[in-house]
Design a protein around this nucleic acid. Structure first.
Length: 426
RNA sequence: GGUGAGGUGGGUGAGUGGCUGAAACCAACGGUUUGCUAAACCGUCGUACCUCGAAAGGGGUACCGAGGGUUCGAAUCCCUCCCUCACCGCCA
């Protein structure tokens, strides 16, 4: 949720920034509407406070009259209190309406794009920020896409997943299952080594939690919902992990907070059909290690760079060809101010697959969840939140299988061998 | 799922209708003392919003799990919900 403070301080700048996101005029108009509503809110609050101060004063006087036996005087004041109460009731309702209206409008506005966000409207306009040094592998004739490799080496079974749950659910087995576990362990170890505290979080969260990180209301349809208990299956570890600090008021010296967590991620996403969603390219449940940081506003950009380095290091250790994209305004996620996507090249499909998204949310999430720290001057300041995948498994597996296939099987990258316990899949 | 006991400021914990935004103690912070440390002593010490002020700072309102209600007045009385703890039942 964008800070009202920012809207008020520079409405024109805000509107201009939103143009980068290609927001429709109706949404841009909200900026002015919100400021007007906020003015109204202040004036209602002012009136209400004054009336209540008066009522409190009268109540005290009535008490004194009662004690000293002046019943008539007390009765007269009671009548006045009754009048004031009626006024405050009306004002209170009006204030509540204005608040609700502000909340509704504010929550419908996406985050302001960071100045570094390139212009553009679709994924095609994303800027290639960096190409990894690993060469794109040249596969021999007859190289197979990962879903064929899975069949050949009995690594995972989409049909079984479909039978158990539905299409888009995967059952891993044998070396395929082992590879999953190895990657999770590897990613967690690397994150912990980089100073992130490991979190093992609940996979079902309540509505308030989903709202705080921005999944509700804007991505409601993306989440699985357990109606009977009013709980959502998490679409990413970001949700429970960031929410650990909901409503927190930290000391400045507690920053930065660096957390990581492995969870399965559940996504309903209807999506398209055909080759694009075949195999592991897009599934309803996948595994991911997420890194999350709570930062002092002055340090969040530096933190973002560190996170990019961390993710890049993982891909280098896995010896995967990758590139880093800087998302353009039109492709930027609702809650994000600045996002870098990592894509790995999946050679048999001859396409880039998104395996990580690293974002700085600045105060968008912390404003929703009232996550602040106290600065040296004693003021409460919203922290910046950041997170990134480090890394998402399913597509990494797809690329690993395809890129490393050869006549003698599929080679496991050196860094992973102590985790898998085998050097190749055969 | 059943029964019982509770939810007060960073912590412990007092407070059953007005002078309680809340005692006391601990922690924390600033200071005095001290060769240093400790102790002792003095002071500060919740959050949000509105408002006055250039600022320093001042004034006001709300908040004692959440939401309603009674009352001139509620941390205190009533109702609903949530959560925690204990015991029983069930159970990976």
């Amino acid at each position: 949720m964008v800070e009202m403070r920012i809207l008020r301080s520079d409405p024109e700048g805000v509107v201009n920034a939103y143009r980068k996101r290609n927001l429709p005029d109706a949404q841009l108009a909200l900026v002015g509407e919100l400021i007007a509503l906020d003015d109204r809110r202040k004036s209602l609050q002012h009136g209400l406070d004054n009336d209540q101060a008066r009522a409190n004063q009268l109540a005290r006087q009535i008490g004194e009259f009662m004690r000293s036996g002046k019943a008539e005087e007390a009765a007269g004041l009671r009548a006045e209190v009754a009048r004031i109460k009626e006024t405050t009731r009306v004002a209170g309702e009006a204030l509540e309406d204005v608040r609700t209206s502000i909340e509704e409008k504010l929550i419908s506005l996406p985050n302001l794009p960071h100045p570094e966000v390139p212009p553009g409207s679709t994924a095609d306009d994303n800027e290639v920020f960096k190409m990894g040094s690993m060469a794109i592998p040249q596969l021999a004739d007859g190289a197979l896409p990962h879903w064929e490799l899975a069949r050949k080496y009995r690594l995972f079974d989409m049909e079984a997943g479909a039978r158990l749950s539905g299409s888009g659910f995967v059952l891993y087995r044998g070396q395929g299952a082992r590879l999953q576990r190895a990657l999770i362990q590897f990613f967690l170890d690397e994150a912990v080594r980089a100073g992130y505290e490991e979190i093992h979080a609940p996979l079902l969260v309540n509505a308030e939690t989903a709202r705080a990180t921005g999944q509700l209301p804007d991505k409601e349809g993306q989440m699985y919902y357990v109606e009977r208990d009013e709980l959502y299956l998490i679409p990413t570890a970001e949700v429970p992990v960031t929410n650990i600090y909901r409503d927190a008021l930290l000391r400045e010296d507690e920053l930065p907070v660096k957390l990581c967590g492995y969870t399965p991620c559940f996504r309903r996403e209807a999506g398209s059909y055909g080759a694009h969603v075949k195999g592991l390219n897009r599934v309803h449940q996948f595994d991911k290690v997420e890194i999350v940081r709570l930062e002092h506003p002055e340090h969040s950009q530096a933190a973002l760079v560190q996170m990019l380095d961390h993710v890049e290091g993982l891909l280098q250790k896995l010896e995967l060809p990758y590139r880093i994209l800087r998302l353009c305004g039109g492709d930027l996620g609702f809650a994000s101010a600045l996002t870098y996507d990592f894509e790995v090249y999946s050679a048999a499909q001859a396409r880039w697959l998104e395996v990580s998204s690293v974002s700085n949310f600045e105060t968008f999430q912390s404003n929703r969840m009232k996550l602040r720290f106290k600065n040296a001057r004693g003021e409460s300041v919203l922290v910046h939140t950041l997170n990134g995948s480090a890394l998402a498994l399913a597509r990494i597996v797809a690329a690993l299988l395809e890129n490393n296939q050869g006549p003698d099987g599929i080679a496991i990258p050196t860094a992973l061998r102590s985790y898998t316990g085998f050097d190749s899949i055969c």
